[in-house]
């Protein structure tokens, strides 16, 4: 029981990070029907941007931890958004209306480019940050094992919930969200009704990247280390989460993220930690093959 509760807490924390990345996949897929293969690497770039700003503020200017993290969060969201905006503008927008595999191949190229760019400009080694928020709140003790929830786990879950609320408000209640949903349903019709489709798609990429940047900050906070190759596996897991929840559905992405986080931690706790990535990839394959519409997705009927 105590191990289970502890793993539940860890799983929900991890799941929050995956869920935030998964939103970027699901929104882009919803609006232009493309798997943004580079999104995992955008997350990694976001983590690096956060790392550099964090070190910049704390070691050069001696900022305290909490104000530095808040500023890092804002700067990270802005600059990662700018990166994804530029990527969309350069690598995906010219390919709209090209043959069907072109955007995917371009995105794979972009993914390779981003991870190797970081490797070249920031070096191939792991980048550690000093541990932060090491305290934790003990919940209960059973069989001599204390179940505790760490401060950073609380922070991650709170930030995720707040961001999701803001995000939900933007998509449901603002003109931008309305334009996004219109483009999702029918781009041509939306354009005829005066929606700036290009701008809406760009903003979708920016929003996805901003959430990925938050996930990047959390990743550094949680694991305390980041590497140029860290985009691939979390990216695939977040994509799995998006598909599991039903691609195109925002609540589905979060639900899928939490499920993947839970499955991963439970698998590590009860089966084998070596095979945890195998489990994630297997779930991806199984879900895509047997449940391609996901839990909350709408079935898609292909017309000739």
């Amino acid at each position: 029981m105590e191990v289970f509760v502890q793993q539940l807490i860890n799983g929900l924390t991890l799941g929050s990070i995956y869920g935030l990345i998964a939103i970027g996949y699901t929104m882009v897929f919803g609006i232009i029907g493309m798997v943004n293969f580079a999104h995992g690497d955008v997350f990694m770039v976001g983590a690096f941007i956060a790392l550099i700003f964090f070190l910049f503020l704390t070691t050069w200017f001696g900022w305290a931890l909490i104000p530095a993290l808040i500023l890092v969060l804002i700067l990270g969201m802005f600059f990662t958004g700018l990166w994804n905006w530029a990527i969309e503008r350069v690598a995906y927008r010219p390919l709209r209306g090209s043959f069907r595999l072109a955007p995917l191949i371009s995105a794979i190229g972009m993914s390779i480019f981003l991870s190797n760019l970081i490797q070249v400009v920031q070096g191939p080694r792991n980048k550690p940050v000093p541990p932060m928020f090491t305290q934790s709140v003990p919940l209960f003790t059973e069989n001599g094992y204390t179940v505790a929830i760490g401060y950073k786990q609380i922070a991650i879950m709170v930030i995720t919930v707040v961001l999701l609320a803001v995000f939900w408000y933007v998509v449901q209640k603002t003109p931008l969200g309305r334009a996004q949903r219109a483009c999702e349903q029918d781009q041509k019709m939306a354009a005829l009704l005066g929606v700036d489709v290009d701008k809406t798609i760009s903003l979708t990429f920016v929003m996805g990247a901003a959430l990925a940047a938050v996930a990047g900050v959390m990743y550094i906070m949680y694991y305390g280390v980041v590497n140029f190759s860290d985009g691939f596996v979390p990216g695939v897991k977040a994509f799995t989460a998006a598909v599991l929840g039903g691609i195109g559905s925002l609540p589905g992405a979060v639900l899928g993220g939490l499920l993947i986080g839970l499955i991963e931690t439970m698998w590590s706790a009860y089966f084998s930690i070596d095979y945890k990535d195998v489990a994630a990839f297997s779930i991806l394959a199984i879900v895509l093959v047997f449940l391609p519409t996901g839990i909350l997705g709408r079935p898609e009927v292909e017309k000739v």
Binding site: S98, A102, I108, I112, F113, L114, V120
Partner: peptide
Amino acid sequence: QYRMLIFGLAMVLMMLWKP
């Protein structure tokens, strides 16, 4: 060390120029 960097960039540019 620029090998894969060039690979990635070439893939993107190729798609843009001649899909």
